[in-house]
Write a protein that binds this DNA or RNA. Structure first.
Lengths: 217, 217
DNA sequence: GTCTATAGATTGATAGAC
DNA sequence: GTCTATCAATCTATAGAC
């Protein structure tokens, strides 16, 4: 019974450690998103999760290692969403599902998206290896699928990369530029605005590549 | 003849001052873009333009004032580009010209776009007033024009804001996420890739809102 | 494992010679 | 106007009591 109990529900030592780590990672994600790596301070992260600054260094040896863990967690979430791009489905189903999932991600994980944007904006000093391995191979498989659709005459001939960039850019814009959007909107987007925006993005892109989209799923 | 001459061409005192200020602003734009406000240091900016750190404080009293000047300069460039959205032209001409200009901006002023993205990402602490005044009124006039097009049956009915966000997101992505794009591309985009990307963005968006686009201008 | 106190390094900003 | 030297504040990281 040497361990301090804190406010969290008690559990095994491993569970408590995991809980504390997650609390720190959540706080760090928010601070890194709003201030960038350079602008964020360990003190601000500590305050955000109600822990002394020294505890952060106990769980994550350095600011850079903590940041790396934050970015890795975000990449994992992104990868799971990326799987919603079903390479066996029709173009309409595959793209619609992927876009809808990406829009949902922008809505639910705004800070994660912002941290990722920040990282790429600054030349990806931490995640360059992910870009060159995981992201590149994911992209190449999808490029191949889109080329097949084009060869089959299912969609108009467009360079697949420009299409993917368009989907990434448009969906992530709703997270990364949320502040600008909310300023122009005089407040956060309502649920029906999110739905309408999602449907508009889907329909413009699908029509744009020659598909006449049916009703949303 | 008390003034030091330096490497620049000599001129009036005012011209020299302007020249030095611009050199500092150029350097600052690059450093702020790559590191963010918090990550950038006056030393790094000074090194980048080959001046002692103290000189930066002589021309711009503080880091924040220098940053503000950088952001203001970028906003001016953005505004000039925004004028290419001709409210008297047909939807096809107006949108195509606007998209082409925005893509050109992403290519020519990558760092400016990155600084802007950084600023909005972090909640626009410096430029909030621009968002609420200039950007908001520009947007409202364009929203009105797009609604008129819809009423005339010239384009499909879509919420004008989502369409504008799509154009902003997609075009700016080529600057803000240039590092990711270049990693996937195994190098910078070639001239013909820029042209193809621009044409693809135009054609998808125009077809997406119900316009059958002709040949590019 | 948790917390206080502090070391060690860096940074924005300024003083003052030239 | 330019530059060197330096101050005062801040930050990452750690030492050491509990």
């Amino acid at each position: 019974m040497a361990q301090t109990e804190g406010a969290e529900k008690s559990g095994t030592r491993a569970e408590m450690r995991e809980e504390t780590e997650r609390a720190i990672l959540d706080a760090a994600e928010g601070i890194f998103a709003e201030a960038g790596f350079g602008g964020a301070t360990m003190q601000a992260i500590a305050d955000s999760c109600g822990l002394p600054k020294a505890n952060l260094h106990y769980y994550f040896s350095s600011k850079e290692k903590l940041y790396r863990r934050v970015v890795e967690r975000i990449f994992t979430v992104w990868l799971e969403a990326a799987d919603s791009f079903d390479t066996d489905a029709t173009p309409e189903v595959a793209l619609r599902r992927y876009i809808e999932r990406k829009m949902q991600l922008s809505r639910d994980y705004r800070y994660g998206s912002k941290v990722w944007a920040n990282e790429v904006l600054h030349g990806a000093p931490i995640i360059q290896d992910y870009l060159e391995t995981t992201l590149r191979s994911w992209t190449e498989t999808r490029v191949a699928v889109i080329r097949r659709w084009i060869a089959q005459g299912a969609i108009r001939p467009v360079e697949p990369r420009w299409l993917l960039y368009m989907i990434w850019a448009t969906t992530q814009h709703y997270a990364d530029f949320a502040h600008q959007i909310e300023t122009l909107n005089h407040g956060p987007l309502e649920a029906d605005q999110w739905d309408d925006a999602t449907e508009t993005v889907c329909s413009i892109i699908l029509r744009g590549i020659g598909i006449d989209p049916g009703a949303p799923a």
